[in-house]
Every structure is written in structure tokens, then in C-alpha cells.
Simulated assay, not measured.
Amino acid sequence: MGKSTRHFDRWNTVMKSTWTYQVFHKYNDELNEMLWANKAAMKQTYSNFKTNGANWTDLASDHLIFDVPKGQEAFKDLKNWSDTYNSFSNWTNLNALLALSSNFETYLATVITLAIESDPGILFDSPNSIDGIVLLKNGAQKNMFHDSVIESITKGDWNARTSAYKKTFGMVPSGLESRVGDLDKIRNLRNKIGHAFGRDIEESRNHEVKETLAMESLSDEQFKKKQYTIMNAVRAIDQHLLDKHIGEYQTIAFYHRIYDGLRNDIHQSERAVILKKQLGQFGDLSGKEFCKELVSYYEKI
């Protein structure tokens, strides 16, 4: 059987995720590649030690290359280097979590903004009653409640955030609600990394202490678990908002952005062909019929 024709439906989409989610995922993949590159180098280095019969009491410079003047040692011995490198590996995991959390926060603010712009009726407990593209096309200004709603869902602890999410969207997807406790633990750890060099924030601000505090520990396995927590929460949020409030808003908004640059003296179907080509440049393979129906919908508003 041939591939079925995709048709335009403002509030329903066959897309599996928002463009915002796709960007989030690309950043996450980039982060993973950097982590894997470092882990692979670490494993190879320790494998070389074993092959070369290295001992912990050896000079580190007997087995590693350092950019220091000849005759000087950067570490007491190989064990000292290994302990330091393991601390660096832990520090790398902590900062990877900081980067992932920041990516999550950016995604969250962006996708919620997208949902509200698409379905502004939610601000008045009337979802799908106002097509946000109508407001966009007519140059409407941002709703006065917009920023406060965004902040209520993206700031504070996760119990408060999910409460604000439910107040705004009427429900909290189970994939988010079941992970509230874990997300709040991640939030607290993220704050320690971002504001106290990976240490307890309150203890770090004690001016009577002269010693450094112990750094938080985050193993590879623990990092993976926290990464999965964030990824699954993002999937749940994205699916909910895409299905209930966003629909095909992103593709219509894309056409809105390019519309003024298109010729009005050509047939509407030709503008649809241009839309199809431009969407294709970003990997969106929307078909001819879909684009014709979208163009017709937009231009009738």
C-alpha cells in the first residue's frame, strides 16, 4: 500500500514532537558525545597503564605527557594523578548535569511559551477557543499574564511548578507528575553546582570556615539515571502540550514568517510549493496537499 496523504488539521498533528523538543534532543546528543569522548579516552589511558606494567608509585610523567618544564612534576606520583583525574571525572559529571538542567529549563520556558501563543484561550480557562495564529497575524501584543505564567512553571521547587502547570493547562501528564521528587533533587543539586562549586550552598557561605568542603559525588550511573529522569519528563510534557495545545501552530507560524517575502501575484498553490521546499530544508517532509491546505487556512484568516 502507498503512503497515506497527510492533511492539515490545526489542532491535531501527526508529528511526534515539537521542534522545540527536537532542538533539546540535539543539545542532549551533543552533550552525550562529549562525555563519551572523555570516558573512552579515560578507559584507554588506564588500559595502557596495565599493558605497560605501570605502578601507582611511578612518576606520572613516566606514562603521561605533561606540558611542564623538563624535570618538574605536575603530580607526586601516578596514584596522585589518578585520584585527581577521578575527581575531574566527577566534576565533569556534575557540570554535565548542570548543562542538561539548563537545557531542560530553556526547553521548558520555550515550549510553554509556544503552547500559550498557540492556544491563548488557556489563560482564560478556555482551551482551543482562540487560534493564536489569528493574534499573530494581526500583530497582537503579548498577553499581560504571559510572563507570570511562564515564571510560575519554570521557577521554584517542582511541587510549585507542577501546581502552576495544572492551573494553566488543566492537568499534569503522569510522566511528569511521577518524577516530581526526582526532579526536585536534581534542581537542588544543580543549584549546588551552579552557585557553590558543587558544594552545599549554605555551608559554603559560612565565613568562619577556612577549609574547602567536600564536593558532591555523581557517578556515571547516577548521572545516567538523572538524565533519563529529565528526558522522560520532557517527553511527557512535549506530548501533552503538542497534542492538546500546539497542534500545527509551528508550521503555520513558520509560514507567517515567510509570507511577507512571497509574491502575491502567483497562485496560492505556488506559495504552497515554496512552503514545502522551505520546510524540507529543516527536515520537515510535509507533503503537497498538507502545505496547500495550510496556506489556504492561513490566508483565509
Rank of each mutant, 00 (worst) to 15 (best):
L279W: 09
K225T: 14
L285D: 14
D182W: 01
G283E: 03
A164K: 07
G181T: 11
N103K: 04
D220P: 09
S101I: 01
S47P: 02
K292N: 14
D125W: 00
F169M: 03
E216I: 01
L279T: 11
R271A: 04
L262G: 09
L242I: 04
V172P: 02
K76N: 11
H256C: 05
S163R: 14
W11T: 03
V209C: 02
L123R: 04
S126T: 13
P173T: 05
H245S: 04
N128R: 15
S4Y: 13
L242A: 05
K26Y: 05
I193R: 02
S101T: 09
G283H: 02
F24P: 01
I153E: 00
F282Q: 11
Y249D: 01
A40P: 05
Y228C: 08
D184Q: 05
R263T: 07
D9H: 06
L64K: 13
R205S: 00
D243A: 15
L31F: 08
S217A: 03
A109P: 07
L241Q: 01
G71R: 06
E208K: 13
K43D: 13
A115L: 02
Q72N: 08
Y46W: 14
L78F: 02
F223W: 12
K137L: 10
S148D: 14
R205C: 00
N206E: 10
A214Y: 12
M1A: 04
G132C: 00
K70Q: 12
I266N: 00
S102M: 11
Y27A: 09
L114R: 08
E33W: 12
D77T: 00
H63C: 08
E151K: 15
F124N: 13
Y46M: 07
Q141Y: 10
H195V: 00
S286Q: 07
G261V: 11
N128H: 10
H256M: 04
H267V: 12
G198R: 09
F8K: 09
W158F: 15
N32C: 11
N38D: 13
N143I: 01
L78V: 00
E211M: 08
N188T: 02
S101G: 08
I230Y: 03
L279S: 06
V134I: 14
N264F: 06
F197S: 15
E151V: 13
Q278W: 15
E248Y: 06
I193E: 00
M34F: 03
R161V: 07
L78C: 03
Y249Q: 01
Y165E: 06
R205K: 13
Q250R: 09
S178T: 13
A41W: 15
I153Y: 00
S286H: 05
L242C: 02
T168L: 09
D157I: 08
E299R: 10
G181P: 09
P69Y: 11
N159I: 12
L108F: 15
T51D: 01
E211T: 13
N188K: 07
K210I: 10
I252S: 03
T84M: 11
L94E: 04
E105K: 12
R190D: 07
D83C: 02
G287Y: 06
